[in-house]
Design a protein around this nucleic acid. Structure first.
Lengths: 376, 376
DNA sequence: AGCGATTACGTAAGGCACTTGATTAAGTAG
DNA sequence: CTACTTAATCAAGTGCCTTACGTAATCGCT
């Protein structure tokens, strides 16, 4: 822990950051409100707000009709959300997605392009182009972006290098953060997609208000993202959540669905996800065998989750990824399984963010970085 | 996150805390050194040190021969470790242990008494008496203690209540922190023993310098303590590490040893720990069957650990508890198992703290609390 | 319309903590 | 004994915040 010390200017930085925070949390605020909330005197709040306006972080806004109290009308100020923008990028197995939002967290543009099998260099170019594209749609230059957050499949180390990727050919070993940082005139932050997904759930998804969350991604593969103490857990080698090589059949749940699909329509070759979609669709139509397979699948997931839930004791388990659309069909058996076996069963819910979760997480990740530089 | 703000006096508090920190980290320091390290001017460092001395936190010490440089000799100051003391208590299955240490972390007294089956009220009295005893041995009054840290078996909630204990009869439901706080004229902090054990390993054990650690306690039962980001992980219901009710045979490793002991000496009734001691002793003597049983036991533990290691990606796994005396006999098979199956295998080591780990952790927990109040 | 009550704005004076810079003190090296 | 080095001491001076007081703008009541 860095020992804090400093001269008088530190005080100003601190108070300035406090005021800015309060401004951003409230829609609008008067000087008196700011002074009270930040526990500083009015004159102090005044000069700080003047500075913030001069630097473009805040703006005065016209008074609204209706909320007029007694006494002299107060000037009203608000955080200038458009003073900066960030981009979030999601590098998925089949799609490159990107979003732009302002510093207030409002999404102002989004776009996506297919992510077919291509050499790494070409994909880097595609990402750069996509970032420029969405930035343009938002009326911003790439150079003016406060940060670009990127979420990608694979093991991503602390420096934003893709250490290992089985989904994207040629992606292993790419120094994604370095390469994008060289091509983009803005700070680039690369993270693993699971960690960003759970961050998104915490920000705008079903995990709002919960600081200890286990996120289970279900799609063509299984993945885990852990939120611990409100922050994504990365692990010593940034490999947290990698359950792919898990021994035994701990996480080999897909076979229940694959077996069902194979039995129902023999000869058909399916990916995990295709088999899952097939079985889920049949189950929703009322097919008893399919329902049984889905239940076995979910229970298997529950068993895997249990090995984590007991040691970690999370508040919440979120089931995300494309299979989470199945909702209670998937969630209910997991809930039952955990309820039976945990001293303190966590809540179990399905994600509602859908395919946007990783991009949203990348946005939040970039916003976190912007905040850090903003509040210093 | 609380938004910081404050007037000029905050600056003094901050700088004062910084100086105090530096003083405690260095054995002795001159004013110039302090000013440089804390990044404040010399006059500032001077008045702060004067204040600290007046309040008893620091003291001037005579110059040492030998380290004389050129120029006017500097006054030398040091942290006054004896300005405060804390007590750490470990409530184990068969023993109550206590230690006293000063604010510099030096143990100055220790004592322990048996913890036989007794009513909760009686045990509370025994703890209070033990605390008074060790405090007396250290030449301190209980009322002068900066904090008393207590580690106990069982599920301990955020307020220091024993929510559940299977080891100590009548211990379930005791508001340990409240009851002790009422009986002791000092701040009392109660935590789960596993979390304190891993804290001790981080402080003075094999986990020094590692911030992401999985600690596996092996004794009469299995328990887990997680250190995440350098801090003990508590979980949403403070039940982190409770693997007792784990489903299936995930953590039922003891049966390998119990089966061996039963086969070797039929009819003998043993606790888990007795069976383990028996098998380990035989294995050390070269008994092939015993070695096989121990290996199966260790491998079973490895399988349980794997379910945690892959999602959490710790730097280190520490095997603690009484069985860890077996050393490589236990650790080596676990290491092999994890090395085979992890993308990034953690280091695996046996604890060297022995039976003191929980008490040491309680000490460190109390010191953390003392620090928090010290540096404000 | 005028007046008091209420609330916010604006400015001045004072205090606290830190900094810089000059001067004095206390040693060592030659 | 002198030169050099480093520490202690003292004296401004600056930045930031606070309290205090006077001014401005609006509402509600008479």
């Amino acid at each position: 822990m860095r020992q804090q010390s400093g001269d008088a200017s530190l005080l100003r930085r601190l108070n300035s950051a406090a005021i800015l925070r309060i401004l951003r949390e409230h829609e609008v605020a008067t000087l008196s409100e700011l002074a009270r909330a930040a526990r500083v005197s009015r004159p102090t709040a005044e000069v700080i707000v003047e500075d913030l306006i001069a630097e473009g972080w805040a703006e005065e806004c016209a008074e609204e009709q209706g909320d007029r109290q007694r006494g002299r009308p107060a000037k009203r100020f608000r955080f200038r959300a458009s003073s900066g923008h960030v981009v979030g990028v999601g590098v998925g197995g089949s799609t490159l997605r990107a979003m732009v939002c302002d510093l207030g967290g409002t999404i102002v543009a989004a776009h996506h392009v297919p992510n077919y099998a291509m050499p790494a260099g070409e994909r880097l170019d595609a990402i750069v182009e996509l970032v420029a594209d969405v930035a343009g749609r938002a009326g911003t230059a790439v150079a003016d972006l406060a940060a670009v957050g990127v979420g990608t499949t694979g093991v991503v180390d602390g420096a934003g290098r893709v250490v290992k990727s089985v989904v994207l050919p040629g992606w292993t070993g790419v120094d994604l953060q370095g390469e994008l940082g060289r091509r983009l005139p803005a700070p680039v932050l690369v993270e693993n997609d699971m960690r960003l997904a759970v961050l998104a759930e915490h920000w705008r998804g079903t995990a709002r208000g919960h600081s200890d969350v286990v996120y289970l991604f279900t799609g063509n593969r299984l993945g885990i993202g852990l939120l611990i103490g409100g922050r994504p857990h990365r692990g010593a080698h940034a490999a947290s959540g990698e359950i792919g090589r898990q021994a035994g059949d701990q996480w080999q749940a897909f076979r229940h669905l694959a077996d069902f699909a194979m039995a129902a329509e023999p000869g058909e070759l399916r990916t995990h996800r295709q088999a899952a979609d097939f079985a889920l669709a049949r189950a929703e139509e009322g097919d008893a065998g399919a329902a049984e397979a889905v239940r076995a699948f979910a229970t298997h997931l529950g068993a895997g989750l249990l090995t984590l839930v007991n040691p970690l004791d999370p508040e919440l388990v979120v089931i995300g990824g494309s299979l989470s659309r199945a909702g209670d069909l998937l969630v209910e058996p997991i809930r039952e399984f955990l309820d039976d076996r945990c001293l303190y069963p966590p809540k179990v819910v399905a994600s509602t963010l859908g395919s946007e979760s990783i991009t949203l997480g990348a946005i939040r990740w970039a916003l976190n970085h912007a905040d850090q530089t903003l509040f210093t």
